[in-house]
Write a protein that binds this DNA or RNA. Structure first.
Lengths: 202, 202
DNA sequence: CCGTCTCTTGACCACTTGGTCAAAACGCTA
DNA sequence: TAGCGTTTTGACCAAGTGGTCAAGAGACGG
C-alpha cells in the first residue's frame, strides 16, 4: 500500500463527487459508468483504473458519506436540556436535507432496495448508535423531562420527517408552490413545535 | 375500443401485479421486462402484446394504484373531531405501510427520481386534494380545536412518518430487532401520541 | 367442427452497458 | 532531460436489454 499520488487523490475525489450526483439521481441500476465518467471529466477506462468496478465506486461513495450522515446524531448531548437538544437535532437534520439532498437520496435509494450494501452498518455501527441514543432519551423520560415515549420510534420520526424534505423534494415543491428555500425554514419551524409540544411531559 | 376479453383482463391483471413487485423492489431502471414476464408466468413477447413497452407497464401500474394510495386522505371527514380524524388517518396510513409496502416503495422510487411520470398528478389532482385538506385543517385551527400549525407541513409529517415504515423497512427491522409485525403497532401508537399531543390547542 | 380472430412464443435484432487491454501520453525525479 | 513508473484512452468484447416479427396454437361463435 503506497501513499497515493496527488493525481490519485484528485481523481478519486472527482469521481466520488460525480458518482454521488449520478447515483443519487438515477439509483444504482440507473446510473451508468459512462455517465459518471463524463461528469467526472475523464474516460471510462480511466475511471475504472481508479475504481475497479461500478460496485466499487458505489460502495466507496456510500462509505465516505456515512460518517457525515450520522454526525448530527452523534452531536446530541446527553447532558443538555432535552427540548434544546431535540430542537437542535431537528435543525441540523433539516440543514442537511437542504444542503446535502443528494446524500439523503443516495441512502434512501439504498434502503428502498433493501440495503444490500449496508446491512452490516445497520446491524453494527448504526444499531449501536441508535441504542445509545435511545438510552439517553429513556433517561430524559425517566427524569420526567419529556413524555415517556418509545425512543426508537421517536428517532424514526425525526429521521423520516426531515429527510422527507430532501427525498420527496419534487413533491414538496410541487405542493407548496415554488418558494425558494422557505420550505426548509417553515418545515423546521413546524417540526419543532410538533415534537416539542408532542413530547412535553404532562 | 372493444370490450376486453376475459383473457385480456386476466393477463393485464397478472402483469400489473408482477410489475408492481419488480418495479418496487428494483426501481424502474433496475426492473427488466424479462423479470416481469417471468413473474407473470408468460413470455416477454406476450407481455409486450398487452403493454407495448416497459414505460407503458410502469405508467399503467402507477395510475392503477394512485387512487388506492390517496384514498385514506379522501376519507378524512371535515365535520369529525380533529383528534379522532387525525388518529384515524394515521392508523389508515400505517395499515397501508404494513399491508401495501410495495405501493409505498413504488411511489418513493418515483419521487426520488424526480417524479418524471407524476408531475402532472402532483400539480393537479394531488395538489387539489392537499389544498382542500389544508383548508379543513386551517378550519380546525381557527376554531381552536387544534394548535395553529402550517397544514401542509403537517400533512408532510404524517406522510413521511408512516411511509417510513414501508420504505425503510430494512432499517426499521434491523434497528428494532425482528419483531413480527409489532413495529407497526408500536409505531402507530407513538405517532398518535406525538401528533395528538403535539397538536393540542394551548 | 369450421373459420376467424385472439393469443402465444422462438428466433432475432439493434443498442446499451460494464469491463478489458495494449499502447500511447504524461509527470516526476535523479 | 533521460528514463521509468503512472496515467490516459481508443478500440474492443461479451452479456444483457427493450423491442420486433412471422408463424403457430388456442378460443369460441355460428
Amino acid at each position: 500500500m503506497n501513499k497515493p499520488t496527488r493525481i490519485q487523490t484528485e481523481n478519486r475525489a472527482k469521481i466520488a463527487a460525480a458518482a454521488l450526483e449520478v447515483f443519487a439521481a438515477e439509483g444504482f441500476r440507473g446510473a451508468t459508468v459512462d455517465a459518471i465518467a463524463e461528469r467526472a471529466g475523464m474516460s471510462k477506462p480511466n475511471l475504472l483504473y481508479y475504481f475497479g468496478s461500478k460496485e466499487a465506486i458505489y460502495r466507496a461513495v456510500l462509505e465516505r458519506l456515512l460518517d457525515d450522515w450520522l454526525a448530527p446524531l452523534r452531536e446530541l448531548n446527553p447532558e443538555g436540556d432535552p427540548a434544546r437538544e431535540i430542537a437542535a437535532y431537528l435543525d441540523r437534520k433539516m440543514e442537511m436535507a437542504r444542503d446535502y439532498p443528494q446524500e439523503s437520496r443516495l441512502f434512501a435509494n439504498e434502503m428502498l432496495r433493501g440495503a444490500p450494501n449496508m446491512s452490516d452498518v445497520i446491524s453494527g455501527e448504526l444499531k449501536a448508535l441508535v441504542e445509545e441514543t435511545a438510552e439517553v432519551i429513556r433517561g430524559w423520560a425517566a427524569a420526567g423531562k419529556i413524555a415517556p415515549v418509545d425512543p426508537k420510534h421517536l428517532i424514526f420520526a425525526i429521521w423520516s420527517t426531515t429527510q422527507h424534505y430532501a427525498d420527496f423534494d419534487v413533491q414538496v415543491r410541487g405542493l407548496l408552490g415554488d418558494d425558494g428555500e422557505g420550505r426548509f425554514h417553515d418545515g423546521a419551524a413546524f417540526l419543532k413545535t410538533l415534537f416539542l409540544d408532542g413530547l412535553k411531559p404532562r
